[in-house]
Computed example of a mutant assay.
Amino acid sequence: MSREKINKLIEIENQNLPWFVKEYLHSKSIVPYSAVTLYEYAKEFRRFFEWLISEEIISAPRTLQIELEDLEELRKEDVELYKSHLMHSPKVGTVKDSRSRSFVTVQRSITALRSLFKYLNTQTETKNNQVYLSQNVFLKIENVKTTKTLQERSRSIEKKLLLDDEAILFLYYIDQDYENTLTSHQAKAAFKRNKIRDLGIIALFLGTGIRLSELVNMQVSDLDTLNLEATVIRKGGFKDIALISSLFIDYIVQYEEARQRLYAPDFQEKALFLTTYKGAAKRIEPSTVEKMVAKYSSSFKTRITPHKLRHTVGTQLYKKTNSLLTVSHQLGQTGTSATAIYTHIVDSEQRDAMNDLWNDNE
């Protein structure tokens, strides 16, 4: 989905949201949060407000007319009831109607609302130098717990990773063998046109572990191949440096040198990765990258996403360093809890070592 379309969808959601939510969304757009994140948050806010009205917890006739005073009066049991509603009621209005929401989906709702209430409770100011809300009811709400253990999650993830030499073989496959799987002249021509770019994108994913949003938002000036570094904007809007593995740098340099020749962008187009739209070069869209990764990976091994390439880097780095702190720094995580899953992915190596511990290999 294009950025212009997402911004239009945000405008539509804004029409049904109270003024203080619009203020929140504007403040986060400056951070900046990605347009996709803001759109998802806006939908979560609308759904929450619609539910409050439908349950008669708030008496406002429309979501647009909800006031700060209404939120001030919310109690823990009100929000716990909404959390229960998300966990147990079926989805409606989507292609997955009547299916239960995953714990990830429910947690995303809680995270979005927690962010809004934190803003209203700590980051706002009235004319009297007071915050908009005197209490934050979401401080009392616990996160949603998954029924899967880390080990179960890690095993399901491991099946979709490119471990050990598979990452190198994946790039080699795209470079040397993928074209032979294509039957039409049109498909071969499209592949050849973007081959150098596609290899550069996947090499940068595998060489850094950066997120999809971080990659597509990179500017030409953010890439420093001489020092093997990529400047990215992390979640939360802070700038960070991701180290690039020298193992993948050749593919990245090849694209950097060919960018102008391949796409002939205007002088003002500073995006690192480009595509051609209606004869003009423009920044590549996240959906285009997702489809591209899925296409190559399906042909090579199994369909994967850019996020699985990120997991691949995290797993390999942990195997080499045995340090969650190192992994969290490379991946731009604010703590080590999100990277703990990698310790379980490499458990098989630990088991093999223990099984072989007392064997005489001489």
Rank of each mutant, 00 (worst) to 15 (best):
L139R: 13
V253C: 10
V137M: 05
L324D: 00
R259A: 00
S100K: 15
E179N: 09
V253A: 03
V293H: 00
L247Q: 14
A294C: 03
L71H: 08
P61Y: 06
T275D: 02
E285G: 11
T149F: 11
Y251G: 04
W358C: 10
G200E: 07
Q130C: 05
V131W: 05
K239N: 07
E69M: 13
R351M: 12
D250G: 06
E67H: 10
Q260M: 14
K76N: 10
D97W: 06
R259P: 09
F248W: 01
V92P: 05
L317Y: 04
K43E: 13
R310F: 08
E179C: 03
G332R: 00
L74R: 00
G237F: 08
L309H: 04
Y342H: 05
Q260D: 15
E67N: 09
E214L: 01
I284A: 07
N322K: 13
S34C: 02
Q330S: 06
N121Q: 09
S245K: 09
N322P: 02
Q219P: 00
G207F: 04
F267R: 15
K188V: 02
Q65S: 15
A190V: 11
S34I: 02
K295G: 06
T122E: 13
D198F: 07
T124K: 00
E349I: 01
K159W: 06
R46P: 01
D222A: 04
S100H: 12
L139I: 03
L120Y: 09
V106Q: 10
D198L: 04
D347W: 00
T321C: 02
I341S: 05
A187Q: 12
S29L: 04
N194D: 13
E152L: 00
M354C: 09
S109A: 13
I201D: 06
D250Y: 05
V346G: 02
R153D: 13
I196G: 00
Q254T: 11
E125Y: 01
K278I: 06
T339S: 15
D352A: 13
L212T: 08
E23L: 07
L113W: 09
N7W: 03
A112I: 05
K96I: 12
Q123C: 13
M1G: 14
R193Y: 07
R310W: 06
S2P: 03
Q65W: 14
